[in-house]
Amino acid sequence: MLWYHIVFLALIQGLTEFLPISSSAHLILPAQLLDWPDQGLAFDVAVHVGTLMAIIWYFRSDLWKIICAWVGSVSGKGCSNDSQLAWWIVLATIPACIAGLVFDDFISTHLRSIEVIAYTTIGFGVLLWLADRFGHSNKTQRDFALNSVLAIGLAQALALIPGTSRSGITMTAARSLGFNRETSARFSFLLSIPLITAAGSLKLIELMSSAIVVDWSSLIMGVILSAISAYLCIYLFLKWLNTIGFFPFFIYRLVLGVILLLMVYA
């Protein structure tokens, strides 16, 4: 990989992992549209580590309280809002983990095309806008229940399809269930932590069992750039979300999807 490939892909991963526009699609497209070499497994692991570091650091205070409360609930010290949130995160993560184990090979073989990305980018972008535009906004974290958490978890499993966007589909589900924007985004971001950890761990195991030659300087650059860009993205997104809403992301997805379809059918 050339240096500007590394910079571009690391920044793209950091910026798109938590925005509702699909990081997987944006990492697939450069190789297909620009005839760049595939970034490879090692680089995928590196940029996932970078985004994981960013989300953990941003929510470090919240995570400490959630983990301590969860340990307390397991050891019989009683439940609290934070311990309940920990159990909700675990529960909502299960469907995506199961779907990944069952369908990963099929998705990698049949659904990583520009055409699929174009349709999912448009379709799930429309759903995001509709949920944000017409969904109620009176529910907060205290209103999470088993059915709503399972619905968000099942929606997250759809994000295995390139172009769907993990953050986008979970926010769509939460908004359609009546949760306000801040609660929807915060829960979506917290949900990303176990999922990115699991996906990164599987990639790391695969990497360690392969004979891939690792370019450590490229990987370190990828980790640093993806971490910085992801942290800034999380900060600005949460700061501006209530002001701008999801409409700009819907427009972006619509324009990108139409351009991709024109390229496919031209």
Rank of each mutant, 00 (worst) to 15 (best):
I196L: 09
A157Q: 00
S229P: 02
A96Y: 03
A99L: 02
L177R: 01
A266V: 15
P20R: 10
H48F: 02
Q13L: 02
S226V: 05
T51G: 01
L232W: 12
V223K: 01
I66S: 01
L41N: 10
L2S: 12
A46D: 00
C97S: 12
A230D: 10
G163H: 07
Q39A: 13
I67P: 00
T197G: 11
A31Y: 01
L34Y: 15
L9Y: 02
V264G: 09
E115A: 12
I89H: 01
P30T: 03
P95I: 04
S217I: 14
W64P: 00
D104S: 11
L63M: 12
S209Q: 14
A96D: 01
S24E: 12
T140Q: 08
R186W: 04
R186H: 10
T183P: 00
R60S: 09
I94V: 14
V45P: 00
S217E: 13
L11T: 04
L154Y: 06
F250I: 10
G153W: 02
D35W: 11
G153Q: 03
G125C: 07
Y4N: 09
V7G: 04
L256W: 09
I152N: 05
S61H: 11
G125D: 09
L85A: 02
A99C: 00
C68A: 13
A151F: 15
Q84I: 08
S217M: 13
L130A: 11
Y235D: 10
S184N: 05
G72M: 03
S113V: 02
A25Q: 10
G125I: 13
A151W: 15
W88H: 03
Y252G: 04
V149T: 06
S75K: 12
I56Q: 06
M263Y: 15
A174H: 07
S148L: 12
I21Y: 03
R186N: 09
L232F: 13
V90K: 03
Q32F: 08
K139I: 08
V7E: 06
L204D: 04
V116D: 01
T197M: 14
L127A: 12
I193F: 07
F106S: 13
G72D: 06
I98V: 10
I89M: 01
V102S: 08
W88Q: 05
W88P: 00
L101N: 00
D132F: 10
A31L: 00
R133D: 02
L202G: 05
L236A: 13
L204Q: 04
I205P: 00
E182R: 14
Y58I: 14
L232C: 13
Y4G: 00
H5W: 04
I244E: 07
F103C: 03
L232T: 09
V264T: 14
L27Q: 06
A174F: 07
A96E: 03
L225E: 11
D35I: 05
V214M: 13
P30D: 06
T140R: 12
D35E: 15
A10K: 06
I224C: 11
V223M: 04
I114Y: 00
W36L: 15
D105G: 02
L19R: 07
K77W: 06
A86I: 01
L256R: 07
W3L: 14
L52C: 06
N180I: 13
I21K: 07
V258Y: 09
L195E: 02
G245L: 08
A10M: 06
S176A: 15
S167G: 05
A211Q: 15
A25I: 10
G123R: 08
V47Q: 05
F106V: 15
F8D: 04
W3Y: 14
T197A: 14
M53G: 08
W88Y: 07
I12N: 09
G76H: 02
